[in-house]
């Protein structure tokens, strides 16, 4: 498993995809902007390109020749994607702190606070649980799985933004500056992390089961 992860980062996934989080993270410095979008570029740029390069490099034929199980191939790929998502979140946090320090004003849309990142974790979890079981049904076709997962998270995040924008009570808890609100925001972050982990584990289980049936 560890060796497969080493393979993912040294052979399969280009270093370029670790630079992108810093570029998209810098988008947190745009004043009054929908910051979820900065984290979503992963879905639109990195995911389809990495999955397509697996195909063009015949990655599955290579991986299956190594002394590994089919299920380990799935798990290592999901773990590699998760690490990339965490990199996006980490750079997001750095630039969000910079944003707060620089502008000292609230954002028109969702503020980059702990609750924002909690919801971002659930967004990545939701994307993964849709993408991976669909993708590993063929371990080749990535278009429909990527589109389905992307559309779902765009709808999800749009709903969240609208709720915060138009529902005062939700905005109070998720964006407010009171002690009570801040506690809720940290709870949302912790819950987000737990949901992210649970959805990833479920995605790996479902995807591995489907990949067993794929004829390589």
């Amino acid at each position: 498993m560890q060796k497969l992860l080493y393979k993912e980062f040294n052979l399969s996934i280009h270093k370029f995809y670790f630079i992108i989080p810093f570029l998209t993270g810098a988008l947190f410095l745009i004043p009054q902007w929908p910051f979820f979008l900065a984290l979503m570029y992963f879905f639109f740029i990195s995911v389809p390109n990495i999955l397509s390069s697996y195909n063009s490099q015949n990655d599955n034929s290579f991986s299956i020749m190594m002394p590994v199980k089919k299920s380990d191939i799935v798990k290592s790929k999901i773990l590699a994607f998760t690490i990339l998502e965490l990199t996006h979140l980490a750079t997001g946090v750095i630039f969000a702190l910079l944003n707060i320090a620089l502008y000292k004003t609230d954002n028109f849309l969702f503020d980059p606070n702990p609750a924002f990142f909690g919801i971002a974790f659930t967004m990545y979890g939701l994307f993964n649980i849709i993408l991976f079981p669909m993708y590993f049904k063929t371990a080749y076709s990535y278009g429909i799985p990527t589109l389905t997962a992307s559309i779902t998270v765009v709808l999800y995040i749009t709903a969240v933004e609208l709720l915060v924008l138009f529902n005062g009570k939700i905005a109070y808890y998720l964006e407010g500056g009171s002690a009570e609100s801040r506690i809720v925001q940290w709870i949302v972050l912790i819950a987000g992390i737990i949901i992210f982990a649970a959805l990833n584990a479920a995605a790996a289980r479902m995807a591995a089961k489907r990949f067993e049936k794929v004829n390589l």
Binding site: Q57, D59, S61, M65
Partner: peptide, 12 residues
């Protein structure tokens, strides 16, 4: 060890 005829992985 297993090798497919063309060994066409990671060509570049």
């Amino acid at each position: 060890a297993f090798m497919t005829g063309s060994s066409d992985y990671y060509l570049r």
